[in-house]
């Protein structure tokens, strides 16, 4: 059963696609937000190119993670490699729900490539951890200091430089770091902003003067990060990427979708993904999502499903294939049908 709605009224999918296309054609500033699989991202980027749209993710955490890469880079380790190698794990800041299984694995297993050493897990400003993790984690406390302050304290205290306050429980961590075979700092743009992540990378760099250390950067949104990577190879830039001026441009401020939407710069908003969205006045919302009912205040809702698809997996640290069958159309196919109906537009390739 394939379902779509124009406003609150049931509609045939082709009619809904036609309606969505018409909205995009007359739009002066369309915005596409994505947290989706590879094929849908490819299709959305092609559509954005044709429609002169901005593509972005709604995940603020993905934006922080992207900024870490564009502004300084750093040292990273695959989560699966950390499971096998890290004898000292330090969780900093809160992690998204998708990371909990990984944290449990870290807490419940021993590294097999750490020369026989067993694993010690520390946490710093990590909020509520799953029971299995909370049971074993040694808590380092920064009291009422924010996570950015805590990260700064960590780096400063490890280098034995003066600080205004101290981290509680740092001594045990400091001793473990000195003896470590491999230190994994586990964090995410979900709980740390770009500057805090950069601070933690500075800490990782400091650690590597004597031991081996690296960062597991768990994406705040797995699909959002996947979409950002697909954009990076397709357009040459991570999200947000704008095709408004005819060439691809990246600017995390000018083209931030949430800003364009809130400030009324965008007039049509096409959302591909499952997060709840609600349009402000004066904007036409088109939603492609796995839903059973029309999205409130949306101009067009099309129920889509993930078929055989490729998505970014935090655990694998890369893209994985997910086999699935569904009767609803895939987001990629709906986007491609919209693209086919859009008139040609002169756009320079990236």
């Amino acid at each position: 059963m394939t379902v779509a709605w124009i406003g609150n009224r049931d509609a045939q999918v082709p009619l809904a696609i036609e309606h969505a296309t018409a909205l995009l054609v007359k739009s002066r500033c369309p915005v596409i937000t994505l947290d989706t699989d590879v094929d849908a991202t490819r299709a959305a980027l092609a559509l954005a190119r044709r429609a002169g749209a901005v593509c972005d993710t709604l995940s603020d955490g993905v934006r922080q993670e992207t900024a870490l890469f564009t502004s300084s880079g750093g040292m990273f380790i695959a989560p699966t490699e950390a499971i096998r190698r890290a004898d000292v794990v330090l969780i900093v800041g809160t992690l998204p729900p998708s990371a909990m299984e990984f944290l449990q694995k870290l807490a419940q297993t021993e590294p097999d490539l750490a020369g026989g050493k067993s694993r010690t897990v520390f946490s710093l400003a990590s909020g509520d951890l799953p029971d299995e993790v909370a049971k074993v984690a040694r808590v380092i406390s920064a009291r009422d200091t924010s996570v950015s302050g805590a990260a700064a304290l960590l780096r400063s205290m490890h280098a034995v430089r003066r600080t205004a306050v101290s981290l509680e429980g740092f001594e045990e961590l400091g001793a473990a770091l000195a003896e470590a075979r491999f230190v994994a700092i586990v964090c995410s743009g979900h709980g740390c902003d770009a500057l805090a992540l950069e601070m933690l990378q500075g800490f990782v760099s400091d650690l590597n003067t004597s031991v081996r250390a690296s960062m597991v950067l768990w994406p705040a949104s797995e699909r959002g990060w996947g979409s950002a990577l697909v954009s990076t190879w397709n357009a040459g830039f991570p999200l947000p990427v704008s095709f408004q001026s005819g060439v691809a441009e990246h600017d995390p401020r000018r083209f931030r979708a949430s800003r364009l939407i809130e400030e009324g710069e965008a007039d049509v908003w096409l959302h591909v993904g499952s997060e709840p969205v609600s349009p402000p006045d004066g904007i036409e919302l088109i939603v492609l999502a796995d839903v059973a009912n029309p999205i409130d205040r949306a101009a067009v809702t099309i129920a889509t499903a993930e078929h055989d698809s490729v998505v970014f997996s935090g655990m694998a640290g890369t893209f994985v294939a997910k086999a699935a069958e569904a009767s609803a159309p895939s987001a990629a196919s709906v986007l491609s049908q919209i693209l086919e109906q859009l008139p040609e537009r002169e756009v320079a390739p990236c």
Partner: peptide, 9 residues
């Protein structure tokens, strides 16, 4: 609003 503890008076 908040001063980083890594600044020393």
């Amino acid at each position: 609003q908040e001063l980083s503890p890594t600044f020393i008076e």
